[in-house]
């Protein structure tokens, strides 16, 4: 190998290594915070989700919660709501059979025909564990974003006026955008 060839290949090597400086600077801030999908409408699972959300918000992290499928029921108002337009028979049945809001969710285990849920709520009160409605209120006060999945709303015939105020309406693109900017993601 001649000296000239060695010098050339060394120059090439340097040239190649130098390419890293052409890489564009990351334009966005480093990911931070938490994005969650709440798919479940079970009291125990939604409680866990809300405790995690409140903890993250207390630690000054941005939190986004996307409520879809059974999780959509968490965002419903307490009582029957008069809606604009007519629901189909199936939609009406879904509306009547699914729980209306956080006060009406049931445990995923030890159901005992509703007795288990009553018992756990009593224990929570005795042991000063925050109720689900209060955890939701506290989360919203701390700036946690609640996002209702409009596809689930459409599927189950749930109208905007049946859901609590202060929430956003969006679809999977919004969740992915939020999740991409978060460092933690969860599916509950």
């Amino acid at each position: 190998m001649s000296g000239a060839t060695a010098a050339t290949s060394e120059a090439n090597l340097h040239k190649n290594l130098g390419l890293s400086s052409d890489r564009p600077e990351p334009s966005e801030a480093a990911p931070s915070g938490l994005s969650m999908v709440v798919f479940s409408g079970d009291l125990d699972k939604v409680l866990a989700a809300m405790i995690i959300a409140n903890g993250a918000a207390a630690m000054d992290l941005p939190v986004n919660i996307f409520f879809t499928f059974w999780g959509l029921n968490v965002l419903r108002r307490g009582g029957p709501v008069r809606v604009e337009g007519k629901k189909t028979m199936t939609e009406g049945m879904f509306g009547r059979m699914m729980p209306r809001g956080p006060d009406h969710l049931q445990l995923s285990k030890m159901k005992m025909g509703g007795l288990g849920t009553r018992m756990i709520k009593k224990e929570m009160g005795k042991k000063h564990v925050m109720s689900l409605p209060n955890l939701m209120k506290s989360a919203q006060e701390q700036g946690v974003r609640f996002i209702a999945c409009t596809m689930s709303m459409d599927l189950m015939g749930i109208h905007k006026e049946e859901l609590i105020p202060g929430i956003e309406y969006a679809n999977v693109g919004t969740f992915i955008d939020a999740a991409d900017r978060s460092r933690m993601t969860m599916f509950i």
């Binding site: 405790i51 409140n54 207390a58 000063h128």
Partner: peptide, 13 residues
């Protein structure tokens, strides 16, 4: 005292 997770954290904040 007497409040459970995440109560103390929220009270402190």
């Amino acid at each position: 005292r007497g409040t459970a997770c995440p109560g103390p954290l929220l009270d402190a904040k």
